[in-house]
Write a protein that binds this DNA or RNA. Structure first.
Lengths: 113, 113
DNA sequence: CCTTCATACGTAGCAACGCTACTTGTCAGC
DNA sequence: GCTGACAAGTAGCGTTGCTACGTATGAAGG
């Protein structure tokens, strides 16, 4: 999968995985890899800054804990994050329908408003 | 539609509209607007540089003509562009299936390879 | 005649975003 | 002692689309 294709949709993916329960950063990476059947294998340099961005935006909150001597920062969705995810989902549907109209062979030429 | 969502998919869209026949830049903008029912209203500062990029990459070729005293640079797909479009289509299907698995409610948890 | 709008092309500079490469540290297994 | 999985992070870069301009013609309206 081409890497830069994700542009602008990563935040939505992160919110979506956190919707099912709180996770720490490393676990987010594994969740993405598992739920995408290996398609999404994102480096830590992508995930950690993105989670910090979401936290600055108020869409997730984090707390530290120590498990087996390893420091973990666990993230959970906030109400704001849940609302944002709903918007991202709507945006995704609109976006994929629009682009699909050009790129999917079965797409009709235009759906009248 | 969020603007930056297009990131990485614009080239594919341009190749797709040119697949149906050669067009000049301004007409490409109108074709995108028409076929997307107004969802894609892209500024010239986006389209013109993108077409030049595609030409540098060898995916389109251009020629000048004068119509009603207006200079037009008309673009057409090359064989390389047609091949690239096929790849972009495959990439789009993979990408939209993967992201859709997280963002579309009907998506199954994972499709085993 | 003059202004405005649609047509038509283009560039410069900016901001967003994800990636590469690197660093730090613990624990398990050889 | 060393390697590899686990766990977190930052600095700097490259790509890409957008905003804001600039130029020019033809048609329409006053």
């Amino acid at each position: 999968m081409k890497a830069q294709a994700l542009h602008g949709h990563l935040d939505a993916l992160l919110l979506a995985v956190l919707e099912q329960g709180e996770l720490h950063g490393y676990a987010v990476i594994e969740a993405l890899r598992a739920r995408s059947a290996g398609q999404l294998d994102l480096p830590t340099g992508t995930i950690y800054p993105a989670l910090r961005r979401l936290e600055r935006a108020g869409h997730v909150a984090s707390s530290w804990s120590t498990v087996n001597g390893r420091e973990r920062r666990t993230y959970r969705l906030t109400d704001s994050g849940r609302a944002s995810l709903a918007g991202e989902r709507a945006g995704w549907r609109e976006f994929s329908a629009t682009v699909g109209r050009f790129l999917d062979p079965a797409g009709p030429p235009a759906t009248p408003a």
